[in-house]
Write a protein that binds this DNA or RNA. Sequence first.
DNA 1: TAAAAATACTCCATAGGTATTTTAT
DNA 2: ATAAAATACCTATGGAGTATTTTTA
Lengths: 303, 303
Amino acid sequence: MAPTFHQLHLFYTVAEKSSFSRAAQALHMTQPAVTMQIQGLEDYYGAKLFRRTTKKIELTEAGQALLPYATRFIGLMQEADREMSRFAKKQQGHLQLGASLTIGEYILPRLLGPFAKEFPELTVNMKVTNTTRLLEHVLRQELTFALIEAPVQHPDIHTEPVLDDELLLIVPAGHPLGRQEKVTLSDLRGCPFVLREQGSGTRQVMEEQLRAQGLDPSDLRIDMELGSTGAIKSAVEAGLGVTVLSESSVKHELALGVLAAKRIEGVRFKRSFYVLYLKAALLPLAAVTFLTFIRERDLNRWL
Amino acid sequence: MAPTFHQLHLFYTVAEKSSFSRAAQALHMTQPAVTMQIQGLEDYYGAKLFRRTTKKIELTEAGQALLPYATRFIGLMQEADREMSRFAKKQQGHLQLGASLTIGEYILPRLLGPFAKEFPELTVNMKVTNTTRLLEHVLRQELTFALIEAPVQHPDIHTEPVLDDELLLIVPAGHPLGRQEKVTLSDLRGCPFVLREQGSGTRQVMEEQLRAQGLDPSDLRIDMELGSTGAIKSAVEAGLGVTVLSESSVKHELALGVLAAKRIEGVRFKRSFYVLYLKAALLPLAAVTFLTFIRERDLNRWL
DNA sequence: TAAAAATACTCCATAGGTATTTTAT
DNA sequence: ATAAAATACCTATGGAGTATTTTTA
């Protein structure tokens, strides 16, 4: 009797697309099915929601009144999904996940194992390509969502940050660089570095970024390579060198004053993830679960 | 795939009743049907929502997380219903409406005609008895809702004000009673009254109230009986007497200072409506439409 | 052992699909 | 004339009922 969430979602999509047929297409349905559900809503509320002509449809006054509620319903449902994904242990489903090169190569592989262990009933399928192709795949609904390093602009696509870390130069307390107003790359020449080993995500991202700025990573003087973030922090604290880490992973030490963080002029060691998915299709719970998993991890522990 | 509003409502009721069977009963369903829907939710979220034992069930952590969302969904749906009822012209349905004696006798009869005219597809059936019996009928789901004059206390019942007017003594500007600190009933003896005719709702309610306070309405000196609120206001403004009206119907004149309103010590000419309906069962849209109709009317124009 | 929830099954309503007609530009 | 929405009709999924079994205080 009461409207279903599904109906309100269809209504929202029809309003958004200003067309029954296009909404149907966006939602993997046929046009008559959409018509039926909208009629169901109209019957329930006892008022027409759209004024139809063959060329265009437009919201009636009643439709305009309902639209914000539909939006709020969708938002609330997504919020609930997000909250509930914390508890989803025996959830089952399948994810067609896309990832850009860096993410797909360095970062996701290390997360998929633990994820599969924690959510054994959720199977994940990953496709790695460039952002443009990922966008096309998502538009064609061949991928549920994709993880990329920068937001994209497209009317049918929703982008949302999953993680937005910046890697900073980390120096021990009292280090001369910590007192400088500005730190430039040339300041770092000859400076002893303590870094994660070759092949670690952090290291890879850093080197990629350096190369992207036209700098050769081998110009750096790397004195020490350690296998964990904790070890690196200790080494830097002990004055064995400087390093590059995300601010969040040294929050504690910064607060205590044992380490200092500086941004390097002209260089952005950004580590950003954005999810990209179709506006029309609600993000399925399995995807939300996956994103929650990523967000909850302290990614720096895995990189 | 996504949870239905219905499922969330069932979930809410089961949580509220702490029992599948009692929730089923409250919602006119069988226990297995409730079980199925809850299982559907649990499958979707991949987590148990209730910890079941034969004697009692309790929310799991996941259930506790979902409950506030279920509540918000229900609230949002009711809000939408209320908003949409403004447009519901061709809505169809049937209302089993209960009303207390005064409301059912003096007030509703005058509203049902216009309502039926505006909502020709909504049929209304009215039962008039005392509040106690109305409560029983609502509990037994023989009535969709009931309109009464005062809120009732019952764990399964929701009461909500529809209208809460107080009738005040209205005197022309500059009238001696308007300057008095306190006006008592004895002040009114011999005072010329301008009132609605016998049989009008306002008049009836007033006389009932007077009698309830042990006073004989015929003690009042009624100089004039007029057929409309507007006529009465004009007569009082012109100094032809004093009257009793709800504050809202003389708001304008009070602001202009042409009339003054006083409360009579020891007498409360209250005109309150409360809706009373089952907490478990959402108020059907037809009922919301009816209540919106009542609220939107300036009742004083009809009484 | 006696409640309450879970299963098993049956049935029917309805959501959705395909084919077609209607409508308005 | 044409593109889009509505209607007709059919099928099948799943929601709800009845009957029954399982569970645990």
